[in-house]
Design a protein around this nucleic acid. Structure first.
Lengths: 208, 208
DNA sequence: GTCTATACACTGATAGAC
DNA sequence: GTCTATCAGTGTATAGAC
């Protein structure tokens, strides 16, 4: 399907996704979305009625595309170390392809935490039940076997995800302060992180 | 100085700080700031002329209070492990007292990265020169001595700060998905993190 | 310095022709 | 389905009295 053949709804959706991700809900403008989609404002409301409903459609889709990736690896039967290794590499790669998504999700979730409730029973619930519980069991087994040091699975999962996501959320300050604003240095930093974070975490929990 | 004796400028400033931190620049309303300060809108403009200037005053102050804390520990002469240990505990404690500041700074810095340039030569520059360079040297020395594994100081500092900050930025999703929305569990999680993060990092880099 | 009243621009949303 | 025109509401900012 070429750009010209896309349905108007898709045009609007993609334009809105860009605008909302760049500016956030409060900063986004319906006029700007219409401009990006090369249509007029009235048509936005014809398809999605309100800005809020349009935003909801975007947020749900982005969230549902982004979160389940966590599961693909977490619920596999591979050994814990392998799981972690594969997760980190694929997750950082995923974020590198969509570097503004984490800030977008976290900021909008903070603006309206109740949004999570609407996602429960759907993605959030699945992440917890099929993803985290499974991960949690695997961690506790390894602790019992003595292959990793004692650690709460909740602390470990937050450490893993935080180490993957933080460099993107904190990009302006990292690139600005640590790398003197040099984009290339920052990009190299990200690239080498895929292996560095894995090494770091394995070191932190492995019993040697 | 009691609440009544505070200058109008301070009243405005504190009201604006709350509003901006809660809603961000785009979401904040001058009317709401006036209401919080128990004055009228016109007076806001009398003291700060524009919303932008008022915001700048807030952001600068918050940033300058929050960032230098990183230095207090980083530039000390204590051994690296002690530095890290003291930093993590005091930094997580500081954020627990101001849990919304990290999201605020990172979001607004993302909205307008050029803001950092204005802070350069001031705080950002100091953080880099006196804080990071000093830290970087200490790390490389320990690597040479063989007490820690080889690691780029840039990776290590981002890991340390990320592990401290991320639980606060990701609060809605962590509390919602991992702790079923239970605030108490989340608070306990934060509390134990002060020691858990330290252990985690020392484990990750120490040669045993 | 502080207030009330108001100007002025912009935003989300709708009406109605085609 | 798509457009132009327009409304009602809200937001920042200013004028002017006290």
């Amino acid at each position: 399907m070429t750009e010209q053949e896309k349905s108007t709804e898709d045009l609007i959706f993609n334009a809105a996704r860009e605008e909302f991700i760049e500016k956030g809900f409060d900063g986004a403008r319906m006029q700007e979305i219409a401009k990006r989609a090369s249509i007029n404002k009235a048509l936005l409301h014809y398809y999605f009625r309100t800005k809020e409903k349009l935003f909801d459609a975007i947020f749900d889709k982005v969230f549902k595309i982004f979160m389940p990736k966590v599961l693909d690896v977490m619920q596999s039967d591979a050994p814990l170390f392998t799981k972690i290794e594969v997760f980190i590499e694929s997750y950082i790669r995923l974020i590198m392809e969509n570097p503004h998504i984490p800030s977008f999700i976290l900021h909008e979730l903070n603006r309206n935490p109740d949004r999570l409730v609407g996602l429960f029973g759907n993605v959030a619930g699945i992440v917890k039940e099929k993803g985290f519980s499974r991960f949690s069991e695997a961690v506790n087994e390894e602790i019992k076997k003595g292959t990793i040091v004692p650690i709460q699975p909740e602390q470990l999962i937050v450490n893993i995800i935080g180490l993957c996501i933080f460099p993107f959320i904190g990009r302006p300050i990292i690139q600005g302060v640590i790398f003197n604003g040099d984009k290339l240095q920052y990009d190299n930093f990200l690239e080498s992180r895929k292996k560095e974070v894995t090494k770091f975490i394995i070191n932190a929990i492995a019993v040697k």
